[in-house]
Design a protein around this nucleic acid. Sequence first.
DNA 1: GTCTATAGCCAGATAGAC
DNA 2: GTCTATCTGGCTATAGAC
Lengths: 203, 203
Amino acid sequence: MARLSFREQVLRVREDAIVAAVNRLLADKGFDLMTVDEVAADVGIAKASLYKHFPSKEALAAAAMVRLLQRTLAVVDEQAQVVGAPAIQRLQAVVRWALEVQLAGEMPSLPSQNSSLRAELMGHKEYLDLLMQVSEHLGAWIVQAQAEGDIDPGLPAEVVLYSVFARACDPVPGFLKAGGQHADAQIVAWVMGSFFRGLRPAG
Amino acid sequence: MARLSFREQVLRVREDAIVAAVNRLLADKGFDLMTVDEVAADVGIAKASLYKHFPSKEALAAAAMVRLLQRTLAVVDEQAQVVGAPAIQRLQAVVRWALEVQLAGEMPSLPSQNSSLRAELMGHKEYLDLLMQVSEHLGAWIVQAQAEGDIDPGLPAEVVLYSVFARACDPVPGFLKAGGQHADAQIVAWVMGSFFRGLRPAG
DNA sequence: GTCTATAGCCAGATAGAC
DNA sequence: GTCTATCTGGCTATAGAC
């Protein structure tokens, strides 16, 4: 990693602040309801300045997703270095982390339908690359957990992988939290418990 | 039910057509990307005419949700009349139906975040009434299934109820269908299997 | 790179004739 | 109740000075 000049560091810090604000707003209101004006106001700079850093609203969202995947990959790497743990335990750690991020209101949510956004993401090399890396790690653990008897081998790994990703946008934790009756840890325990029990071999 | 005049019948048919179009578009693109112009074009009337039937875009969406809940309640009532079936079986039938509707591309999806829409729904008596009726039926079956040993009694009924509702907007079936590798019936079987296995008592 | 000011557009909602 | 034509507001994006 090359040393960065002072100028570049300032730039980097500002862009981090922008992406953090976008992440927060995406988690809060979603892509369509998030306005670029809000992002600018949140960061404390003019809207036109934002457009010097990112060429479009879609690019802002893509940057937030890249940041999320980077954080995810860090968690995955951390789990990969735990020695001697069964694969199911590594998977559980990642899902637990995702649920905690979601309950903390820091999980950016994108509409699965917006086409301009999909186009941007599908053309975003870094995003696709990170998504692939995460998928490959998780996929390997899923196959391993099937071999170890913790996940039903009759379930295609693809189905399990999609289900794992889907935990990141599961509306159930949010509903339960909104009810205000239960502690976050309890909610996480319920969701994790029923999810992983559902993946178990039948019988 | 009073006889309707011819005029009223025509009105009713037209409004049914409008709500059906809204349902289709909501399933296809979601609330934010659906435009009132599209709805009008789809029905084949002018946009201004739409506004004679429904006062706002939010009201259109609410009408579609009411229609969905009416269909749901019909399925629930049908299951309620099956004699001698365990409660878990009735729940499974309802979830199966919801998954099939979703795979057929007929499940309207609303953003859980849009505040103007939430306000409209929370003020919509018929919507709330239907939602309550469906919830009460399902809630009773959940408690019964717990007593019958098919659902973990340690799981609050509320958690189970939310999880059931969440199956209606589960992204996993859609992803699997988009992959094109699997038949709808197979997808439904996988999702149903892992979901209900996850609710089972541990051990 | 930052700002103020504004262009351009699109979508929800309405006016008013018939 | 239906239409055509239009209004209105808000949002993305940009121009141009500093």
